[in-house]
Amino acid sequence: MNIFRLAGDMTHLASVLVLLLKIHTIKSCAGISLKTQELYALVFATRYLDIFTNYISFYNTIMKLIFLGSSFSIVWYIKRHKIVHRSYDKDQDTFRHWFIVLPCLVLALLINERFTFKEVMWTFSLYLEAVAILPQLVLLQRTRNIDNLTGQYVFLLGAYRALYILNWIYRYFTEDHYIHWITWIAGLVQTLLYADFFYYYFQSWKNNAKLELPA
């Protein structure tokens, strides 16, 4: 494991912790898209189908369990926790799941490395992860007051993707394995979706101003 991969995983973990902090401690999910959180739960459920059959390392198993457990508990909190649920911006969070899930499923059935159930599900999870942030970005654009934790959460998620790209570049030059088009293109698309957000995030940081995305 190289430093970019570890840093990527740690920023991913930090993003989840920031979100859990907001939800669990402040008891608020204002500005957080339930749609995106549900899509992430689906991403991890379909990607880690082999969690108990394909052992890679203690680290991998623990991290998979953390991402699975946290994503489903975040969804539960927003939907079922009395106080947290009250802060959910339901009327603003209007993105339709199916517009995202169906194209990803069709694409995974058409473009995959092997046509088996597990492989298609794994590929589907890659495509889905690439676009799962869209409802969250739409909600951010509609939110007038983006609080610090929400901004940091999205920033950390974007940073995790950018670091994974550096990890692939590093691995490409240091390990002799072939090219992983599906993983790379999906990952690149995912990272590009954050470009606009990054721009305004750094602007607000530089000017010491509140983060606001233009509509």
């Binding site: 991969r5 991913h12 082999d50 394909n54 890679i56 490395e113 994974y164 990890n167 394995h177 992983h180």
Partner: peptide, 10 residues
């Protein structure tokens, strides 16, 4: 498996 390399990632 053809894609085992990327499957060691999260």
């Amino acid at each position: 498996s053809s894609s085992s390399v990327t499957k060691d990632e999260l």
